[in-house]
């Protein structure tokens, strides 16, 4: 039940968003995210978009490890 579902926002209307998650379309609540736009990537839990995904890679780890090399 706790597995997050990442998806791309296709449409937003009346506090709901249609997202594309690995090709499947789902309607989820967009009430918790302000300024959500089509094209944004979001993390969905239990039918609610809980966070925006700001990049599609984990390059921040490179930054963090700079000090450790």
């Amino acid at each position: 039940m706790c597995v997050g579902l990442p998806g791309k926002v296709e449409k937003i209307k009346d506090g709901m968003a249609i997202i594309d998650a690995y090709g499947a379309k789902r309607q989820v609540s967009a009430e918790l995210l302000e300024d959500l736009m089509p094209g944004d990537y979001v993390m969905v839990h239990a039918g609610v978009a809980i966070a925006k995904i700001t990049s599609d890679d984990d390059e921040e780890l490179d930054e963090l490890f700079k000090d450790e090399k």
């Binding site: 009430e31 918790l32 995210l33 302000e34 993390m43 809980i50 966070a51 925006k52 995904i53 700001t54 990049s55 599609d56 890679d57 984990d58 921040e60 780890l61 963090l64």
Partner: peptide
Amino acid sequence: CYKRVVTYEGSPSA
């Protein structure tokens, strides 16, 4: 180590 989703502030609306 998960900055693409997690921020310092979290989700104020949630």
